[in-house]
Design a protein around this nucleic acid. Structure first.
Lengths: 249, 249
DNA sequence: CGCTCGGTTGAAAATCGTCAAATGGCGTGG
DNA sequence: CCACGCCATTTGACGATTTTCAACCGAGCG
């Protein structure tokens, strides 16, 4: 599906859709993980709309008031935090079922930009509804803590990657992670198209875009990958995973 | 207060103390930030004990069941996540008022080790009490979300540091951060003693210990620091802060 | 008083970043 | 429909930073 007519400013009007977690294929990857049917029904009332974001547009930006949490329904996002001196850090890539905006609870302000890397749809989970419902719905607050906890653990994994791995290991780890997440969503884990540029991968992994490109080329030469621009085919999953574990593996 | 007699295994018996958030000097840095007197009184019933941890001992380890959150009452900790291949990443240093264990909500299991870098005391906040109390105490669950959110933002800051800065900038940023936190706790921000080894700083910053040592020496030569082993005196705070912002500053 | 551990320093090697140029998709406009 | 131009990507050469290996120093502790 192509980019909608570039009248640009589409986003801020949330479109009413028949939104229902109960009938959503992503519910096992999203907020309702482990909920009973009754509990999911409660969520249906809370997730009040979907919103469409065109490629390149921001779902929210750093400094925006934190009015809602978002769950990716379809599409692909990056989040990036910008430092005072202008350099920006891609802190994560989000796909179907992932939540966006967890960093907003602190001071009711989003602390990073969330940019759609392809035309995307998100479910809007208003902060107020979340607060209200979680009073009478202990499983929801528990689940929210779990999701936030998982985000913290994930970030620690990225720190480990940034801190201890060499470029090729980083790129390998990135691909293994991406493949796993695609597989969990029913896509092929061995053949996919990257939604982000080399630059964005580099910013995420703490590498220059040229280094990322060279790593891809090297993995190609080693017969582990088939890379053609953004199209990736993993030829040797075990080999890739071995690289991830580091030379010590 | 010196290290307790090294009978080693002191920890697991929580000592009953007159524990009270309401009379704690750290409450403005800890869980009760922004709570009213009545709200803090509710916390008093929940924080049920203190626990003493000797230097070098673990408060908890990766894989331990997540039974409680901990708030540092005195002392100093590091948290480190260990990867499958044995390398470990220091994910943070915690001091008075900081919370430990936020990564445990996901699967009710601690996901990192928390090691005391000096003799320390923590307040024990049982998970069950937290769950129960937060049912009838909306401000508490809100606050917990805020704290977790802040942890996520903090981690993104570290990722930015690991990803985009060179060694000297990293070390400068580390020192500026530490100084600020010490100041917030009423200690001198310009003269302090490091509680961690060069190795631990290095693991945190994604550098080898030799590189950390060289950075300290260079900052010393530039007249910005006076470093003698673990004793640090910051001579030029602005200079240090300029380095943090990067060459672009 | 010697030993161990943490820290410092030096030199060589490896990795990664920087600069530069060439290639190739892709979308736009003719 | 094709040509053009822009942007992403690739690749090469060089240089800078950081790691690695090794030796040495010094403080704290038994």
């Amino acid at each position: 599906m192509p980019t909608p007519p570039s009248t640009a400013a589409t986003p801020n009007r949330p479109a009413r859709h028949p939104v229902a977690c109960s009938s959503c294929g992503l519910r096992e990857l999203c907020l309702p993980v482990g909920f009973s049917e009754e509990e999911i029904a409660l969520l249906d009332g809370m997730v009040f709309a979907r919103r469409t974001i065109a490629r390149g547009e921001a779902l929210f930006r750093r400094g925006d008031r934190f009015a809602a949490l978002f769950a990716v329904r379809s599409g692909f996002f990056k989040t990036c935090a910008t430092s005072e001196d202008g350099r920006d850090q891609v802190t994560g890539f989000q796909m179907g079922g992932d939540l966006l905006g967890l960093d907003g609870f602190d001071d009711e302000t989003h602390r990073c930009d969330a940019i759609a890397l392809e035309d995307s749809q998100v479910c809007v989970i208003p902060h107020a509804a979340l607060e209200e419902l979680s009073q009478t719905f202990p499983a929801l607050q528990r689940q929210l803590r779990r999701v936030m906890s998982r985000e913290i653990v994930r970030d620690h994994g990225v720190m480990m990657l940034l801190s201890g791995m060499r470029s090729e290991e980083r790129v390998a780890a990135f691909l293994v992670n991406l493949a796993g997440r695609l597989q969990a969503r029913g896509f092929s884990p061995s053949s996919f198209v990257l939604r982000m540029t080399r630059q964005e991968i580099g910013t995420y992994l703490g590498l220059q875009l040229e280094t990322v490109s060279r790593c891809f080329s090297r993995l190609h030469d080693e017969g582990i990958l088939d890379v053609r621009q953004r199209a990736v085919r993993i030829l040797d999953t075990d080999g890739l995973r071995r690289l991830t574990a580091g030379a010590a593996g």
